[in-house]
Design a protein around this nucleic acid. Structure first.
Length: 297
DNA sequence: CCCCAGTCCTGCGGGC
DNA sequence: TGCCCGCAGGACTGGG
């Protein structure tokens, strides 16, 4: 499931597309239900064809492709979407193709593809005013740059559990289910703790470990789970799955304390993984920062 | 406003 | 062996 580190890795792999011209936008034949595409394919192709790509960006879990007339293509991979320059894992889930040219420049990609096994992903072509209305106004500060004070100000009055609040993209953009679990583990905070009950030191540790975990995951090029779906733009898997401390480790011993057993509970209909020993509600337990399991050790 | 449940979707694995 | 059902969850919507 692409979260911020996976989408950032996609973005970095897509930079060769900058300078390319979009020659056509094609929805390949697909027996499955079509993904959400706005506007429809005819208007999408008409508005994008002939435009040059000026930048590849990212906001939260969305890939942004800026065009030379201030339009932006916004791709949301959601659960299983991939943005690829290399050939996709298979053609039956290929959802959208951008045909590219580069005015004789060598080594430029000829196609950019959106592949999505489950089809929950979306692709939109937005004008700058629509971008402001649909992206800027709805997403919080990007998780990679949010400060402790911004995070605390945004959430400290909420009665939601901190794990649920971290998934709210209008508060902080980019954290999903997997990284929320890893962040709260390293911060030593029980994921069920209400935001309005968190102490100052706990906010410090949460904010610090948002950056620690996301940067470390980007350095490993994201997490490719056991279903093998996630791939970067060149169809290569990430490596951070080998660094997970709690996610998908229910009933296994805690890698840090070795006395706790990782628990799985359900919060807001999503699985939450945590160590009941290392992550106590009292907050008395120190963050996991001096241990070999931790990235900042 | 705040928060939760339901919805979309496909592939996979457990149970029978 | 094969079928069915439940589960996975990001983002949005509707309702309490």
């Amino acid at each position: 499931m692409p979260e911020l580190p996976e989408v950032e890795t996609m973005r970095r792999g897509l930079t060769p597309v900058v300078g390319c011209r979009i020659d056509d936008v094609i929805r390949p034949p697909c027996r499955l239900r079509p993904i959400s595409l706005r506007p429809g394919i005819a208007a999408f192709a008409r508005r994008a064809t002939g435009r040059h790509v000026t930048a590849i960006g990212r906001r939260g879990k969305r890939v942004l492709i800026d065009l030379d007339d201030k339009q932006t293509i916004v791709i949301e991979p959601r659960m299983t979407g991939l943005v690829l320059l290399a050939d996709p894992p298979g053609t039956e889930h290929l959802r959208l193709c951008f045909e590219l040219s580069a005015d004789g420049k060598k080594d430029k990609p000829r196609r950019l593809m959106f592949w999505d096994r489950r089809g929950l992903g979306t692709v939109r072509l937005l004008t700058s005013s629509r971008f402001a209305a649909e992206i800027d106004s709805r997403l919080g500060v990007d998780a990679l740059t949010i400060t402790r004070d911004q995070l605390r100000e945004k959430l400290c009055r909420s009665r939601r559990a901190i794990k649920v609040a971290l998934l709210d993209q209008s508060a902080v953009a980019g954290i999903g289910n997997l990284y929320a679990a890893e962040i709260l583990f390293l911060a030593g905070v029980d994921p069920r703790t209400r935001c309005d009950k968190l102490t100052g030191p706990q906010w410090d540790r949460i904010a610090r470990h948002i950056a620690v975990v996301l940067l470390d995951a980007i350095a490993h090029e994201g997490s490719t789970l056991s279903d093998g779906t996630y791939r970067n733009a060149l169809n290569d898997p990430g490596g951070y799955q080998n660094c997970h401390r709690v996610y998908d480790r229910a009933d296994l011993p805690c890698l840090r304390c070795e006395s706790g057993v990782i628990r799985r509970v359900v919060q807001a209909q999503r699985g939450t993984f945590f160590c009941p020993v290392c992550q106590r509600k009292s907050g008395r337990h120190a963050a996991v920062s001096q241990n070999s399991v931790s990235p900042d050790a």
